[in-house]
Each structure stands twice: as C-alpha cells, then as structure tokens.
Design a protein around this nucleic acid. Structure first.
Ligand SMILES: [Mn+2]
Ligand SMILES: [Mn+2]
Ligand SMILES: [Zn+2]
Ligand SMILES: [Zn+2]
Lengths: 146, 146
DNA sequence: TTCTTCTTTAGAATCATTCTAATCTATTGA
DNA sequence: TCAATAGATTAGAATGATTCTAAAGAAGAA
C-alpha cells in the first residue's frame, strides 16, 4: 500500500492551472484560488456567497462579481453543475456525475444520492424537436421536531 | 348523458367564497377574484407576476402584495403547492396531488407528469429525527435545436 | 517589451420577494 | 342597523441574490 503524502503547494497550484488551461481559461490568481477552494477537498455544494466568504479569508481576495463569473464559466466548461433547489440562491456542485440530492430544508445543506438508487420509469416524451436535458430528483428533508 | 352548462356568475362566486371559508379565510373581493383565476379552469402552474397581470386585466384590481400574500395563504391551506424549479421565481401549482413535472427551459412552462410514471427506488434515509417532506422530480426539456 | 485580448472589480442596476405601517373591510353581537 | 374589532389590502420602501457597466489590471503572443 502507498502512503498518501500532501502534495507540495506549488504542485497543487500547477494542477489547478492545468485544469483551467484545459478548460480554455487563463489561470489567473483568482481562478486558481477558486479551483483550489472548490476542488481541493471532496465533493462540495456551495453557493456564491459561501465561496466568496471562503476566499475572503484567504490571502488572495476575490470579488463577488468574479466569484459569480467564475462559477458560471466553470459550469459552462463542465467542471460544475448548477443546482436550482429552492427559489432563492443557486448551488454549484463539484460532482458532475449522475446523481441526485437530499435537501435539508432547515440548514439548506445538500447531500448526494447516487444516481443508481433512483429509478425513473420511462415517461411519455413531449413534442418532437425537444430533448431531455436532465432529470433532477430532490428529496426534501424536514429536520423533524421529534 | 348530461349537457354541461355554464354556471351563473353568482354561483361561481359563491363556490369561491365557500372554498375560502372552508380554508378559514375571509372571502374578500380580492381573494374571490384570485380563487376564480386560479381554479376556474383546469390545472395551472402560475407565478405571482403572471397571476398579478391576469387580475390587473379584470375589473377587480389586486395588488402585487396581495397576490403574494394570498398565494402563500393558499399554499398553507393546502389549496396550492409551491414549486421551486429554477432559482428565480416560484411557481404555484393548483394540482396538489402526487405528481412531477416537465420543465421547458426555453419558455419556463411546466407540464404535469402523473406520479405513477416515476418510480423512485428506496433510498437510504438520513439521520433519525428527520423526515422526508417531499420528493420532487423535474424533467428538464431543452427546446431542441434540431 | 508591446500589443491585444481577456479578466477583474466597485458600484450601480435589476428582479423577485418581503416588510412596514397606514388605510380599509368583513364579521359579529349589541 | 351599527359600532367595535380583528383581519385584509396596499403603496412604497427594503431586502437579497444576481447581473450589468465601464474602467483599470493582468496574461499571452509576437
Ligand atoms: Mn446562474
Ligand atoms: Mn415563497
Ligand atoms: Zn451533488
Ligand atoms: Zn403540477
């Protein structure tokens, strides 16, 4: 078995830059910081404001406008998936694979549900010329008052 | 077979008033107008602005604040179901039974999918003390550029 | 370097929704 | 029939998330 080692800081930055270049985006300081915040740990579901708050804490400041711009660019590039759950803020999901969500109404927290666990029976597809762009399943959880 | 006749205008209003009283709400002019706009025809999926525009056209004007107040009261009373589809406006659904939705991304239109057509396999339920308050399935339709 | 193109950003603008506080009205029971 | 009262309506202000604008800054190419 192999010991996992923390990669040196420069390597992390180089990875982030490579990921950005692969998406056709210039690896600016701000975007590198955002890639690291988003993809440095496991899968995440973040709002723009949450991500903005995180980067404010860091040395490299990122404006809120840039956070929004970048989240949308990453979504267009296929690095993120935008989730519209409640009719308020948008969530951005670093897990772009096929899966669904638990939504904790109390806290606004999202938790992944593997796509295989949900079976959607074949539904009558509407008018020709149209195409299913995605199926979202949201299981709303009421933090029960036991 | 029985001929369907258009009920006299007063009867419609009386029905609306009865429905409101049953929900514990005073049958004001505004609420009667909204009940008729919402439930006078088949199932509907409307936004607050849409409903506001409709009532503006009528003789009995209803303010936007009242449209919002009333939509939420009706939702609390179980007459409507609030749908959070995109992270913008809320839709209010006059069909409160078990069903799901096609969402036409181009037009913002919602179309019902009978609940039986969608099978959600049993998913691992999260921590005790919590309860599933609902399962929403949204089939997003991209108005295809064939 | 130097030029060009892309990027960042502060602040204003927009949009849906909610709040406030003043005015109005449905209900009720003298 | 008529206050009195609780509940309802409303204009306009406030809020919160997001987008836009336009000016200044930084990255890549030559
Ligand atoms: Mn968006
Ligand atoms: Mn609402
Ligand atoms: Zn997810
Ligand atoms: Zn519906």
């Amino acid at each position: 078995m192999t010991m996992s080692t923390t990669p040196p800081i420069d390597e992390v930055a180089r990875d982030a830059a490579a990921r950005l270049r692969a998406a056709g985006l210039r690896p600016t300081r701000q975007r590198v910081a955002l890639v690291r915040a988003l993809f440095g740990q496991g899968d995440r579901h973040v709002t723009a404001e949450q991500l903005y708050a995180e980067t404010q804490a860091l040395d490299v400041g990122v404006s809120l406008a840039t956070v929004y711009n970048t989240l949308h660019q990453f979504t267009r590039a296929g690095l993120l998936r935008e989730l519209a759950i409640g009719s308020g803020r948008s969530y951005f999901d670093t897990n772009t694979g096929h899966h669904h969500h638990f939504f904790y109404e109390g806290t606004g927290q999202l938790v992944d549900v593997p796509g295989e666990l949900v079976q959607v029976a074949s539904v009558p597809l509407p008018p020709k010329g149209t195409e299913v762009s995605g199926v979202d399943v949201i299981i709303r959880i009421k933090d029960g008052g036991c």
